[in-house]
Design a protein around this nucleic acid. Sequence first.
DNA 1: ATAGGGTTAG
Length: 462
Amino acid sequence: MVRMRAQLRLSTRLMNVGLAALCRGGYLVRAESVLIDAIRLGLPPDVVTYNTLLSAHCRADDLNAGVAVVHRMREAGVSPDAVTYNSLIAGASREGLPLRALDLFEEMLRSGITPDAWSYNALMHCLFQSDHPEDAYRVFADMAEKGVAPCATTYNTILNGLFKTGHATNAYRMFRYLQRVGLPTGIVTYNTMINGLCKSGKVGYARMVLKELGRAGHAPNIITYTTVMKCCFRYGRFDEGLETFLSLIEGGYISDAFPYCTVISALVKKGRMQEANTYCELLEQSGSMLDRACYNTLIHLRFHEGKLDDAFDLLDMMEKGHVESDEYTFSILVNGLCKMGQIEAAEKQLWSMEIRGIESNVVAYNCLIDALCKSHEVDAAIKLLHSMKLKDDFTYTSLVHGLCKVGRYHMASKFLRICLREGNNVLASAKRAVISGLRSAGFKNDLRKVQSALYMARFLRS
DNA sequence: ATAGGGTTAG
């Protein structure tokens, strides 16, 4: 009897290994059927079995399926543990549901499961990603109070979160603090710092940290190089960026599609289509898995070349490969169709986007508004603007420019003032267009109102 | 389970 139980435990462990392999490969349906077969054969799944499956569901952006696994394991008499809840919290984070993550954390406590450092890490990460840095910090304080020791990932999560929520200076200070008191910093810390500093415009600091990385005895990895490359493209050092990429190819350091996407989209932006195509072929030859961001990059490339059919072929490939389109995809589609003069087709994509449940996608709306304005259909543009939940600087810049172009300066000045009142802004060229238009049309009253609104806005911003 | 890639106005 004892020996039999031991053998069953061994078999369970073997099953877990197989299950994990299936999950890693994305064969979730097969993993599920393996579990069902195992139960039917009398092989008892344990907490690891369920956790493996659960985390795979969460990683596939299906939190509900993950939660369903918890119910199944409870029914089977297997108690969830910290790993279970950590995966669920990470899943809530992936879907951008901070309240859900907090609920899960509470539920964890109620079930008598003690959170570990990873529970706090996942929760903090979720709060930072959904732009609640103060709450994230409260979680960190709670962690200290409960006597849970932070690990290296904890600090990296906080650094990354501070950058993402616009607190670059705080992140930089904290990084120096970690170094000074000898808290753990590693390659992930350095990459986080370099990326964050680059994106917040502090390139000088980024370069300094990059130099320190070598002195600290860490070897830069592919992520470091991709980050640096992106930074080069962003700040107009195009040749350096390309050289970095070529040396990565020659060295055989590229193991996924990230660097290819970076360089392809930079080339498309520059209009260097032949080179973009060259790297597109290299990407194909590399046999890398194409995910959503890859497809988006490639669809954008095809639209830019005017190859509409190829773009839609890629969209089909996406669907067949069960890669879901997202707000980027729709922005690229709407923009691409607009730029090719197919405004009606673009409108259709916008509606199907709403049906898909991707709401208030500002970028896609902005693209259509801009196209409508450029084809002098300003009233349709205004109507569309009124249906938008969120508007930004792009929205108003396009509309204001469009109204000026058809000589409707009074309307343009009205929207400019609405925009400023909402705390948005428009490009300087749009402001100039309104002012000179009002002046030439002799709308003195509007002119005065606009100028005082601009003055107030500048005053409030500084 | 923390770090890198994808979209819009002039």
